[in-house]
């Protein structure tokens, strides 16, 4: 059987809100390492990878590796019934066809059980090699969200260019064009407010803003976001989940035909 107890239950609620519009059904893989998921969107342009390490849970028991197929919209409906301060416990039996979500209020005066049916999902898993990226930009997550939202009111695609001058986000549409440049800025009070550019080589890639905007639904998970780019690889947009792991989005670039 498996049983995970997550004191900061709101983390799981935030993860679901970040991915449920991108991916409909997914297999959650449970092992001694942690609770993970890898799933592509229906058009195979974007991929979500989640890892919540076992050490981040107050209690983590996983007797054998288990794959739980869930409809993310239904899971989100269940998790929305948990309070933001609730402790969430996930339970399932080996070979069973249900998962139980238990929500405990912080004062322990309200305890709820929700059972959800599991699904058989045949999903394609991609092998993602560890890569050295030509450029990695780390910036405040709220700033990145604002840029993607602003640019999508003007165009459908964004060109992200990293040079030693900074990172430039550009778009063009019927009404005109826009360029937003963020320079490296490490002289801030808090590290999460910094913009840090690690550039081995300049890189310039084009992406669909629709997907970028979808990724920024993960903004409540982390103060900062990192964008890893190479000219021959998908973009990686990573939100670290404090003390537990990460939520990563991979996005295939657009190219000149």
């Amino acid at each position: 059987m498996l049983e995970f107890r997550l004191v900061q239950g709101s983390l799981l609620k935030k993860v679901m809100e970040a991915i449920k519009d991108l991916v409909t059904d997914a297999n959650f893989e449970c092992s001694s390492t942690g609770f993970s998921l890898q799933a592509m969107d229906s058009s195979h342009v974007a991929l979500v990878a989640l890892l919540l390490r076992s050490e981040g849970f107050e209690h983590y028991r996983c007797d054998r590796n288990l794959s739980m197929g869930m409809n993310l919209n239904n899971m989100s409906k269940m998790l929305k019934c948990a309070g933001n301060d609730d402790i969430i416990t996930i339970k399932a039996d080996d070979g069973g066809d249900i998962v139980t979500f238990m929500f405990e209020s912080p004062s322990q005066d309200k305890i709820s059980d929700f059972e959800m049916k599991l699904m058989d999902i045949s999903s394609e898993q991609l092998g993602i090699p560890e890569s050295e990226y030509q450029s990695i930009v780390r910036m405040p997550a709220a700033e990145f969200q604002r840029i993607c939202k602003d640019l999508s009111s003007i165009g459908d695609t964004v060109i992200i260019s990293v040079t030693k001058e900074g990172v430039k986000f550009s778009t063009r549409g019927d009404i005109g064009s826009a360029n937003i440049v963020c320079r490296q800025n490490t002289s801030v009070d808090k590290p999460e407010e910094a913009t840090v550019i690690e550039m081995k080589e300049p890189v310039s890639l084009t992406f669909a803003l629709r997907y970028m905007n979808s990724f920024t639904k993960a903004t409540p998970l982390s103060n900062s976001v990192s964008l890893s780019m190479s000219s021959d690889l998908p973009l990686v947009v990573e939100y670290k989940i404090a003390d537990m792991g990460y939520l990563r989005f991979y996005l295939a670039p657009k190219i000149e035909d």
């Binding site: 592509m40 058009s43 195979h44 342009v45 974007a46 991929l47 394609e124 898993q125 991609l126 092998g127 993602i128 090699p129 695609t157 084009t206 669909a208 021959d232 690889l233 998908p234 991979y250 295939a252 670039p253 657009k254 190219i255 000149e256 035909d257």
Partner: peptide
């Protein structure tokens, strides 16, 4: 013309 690539163009299936 700008063409949208897919992830399979970069990553292999396991």
């Amino acid at each position: 013309e700008i063409f949208q690539t897919s992830l399979e163009d970069f990553f292999t299936n396991k």
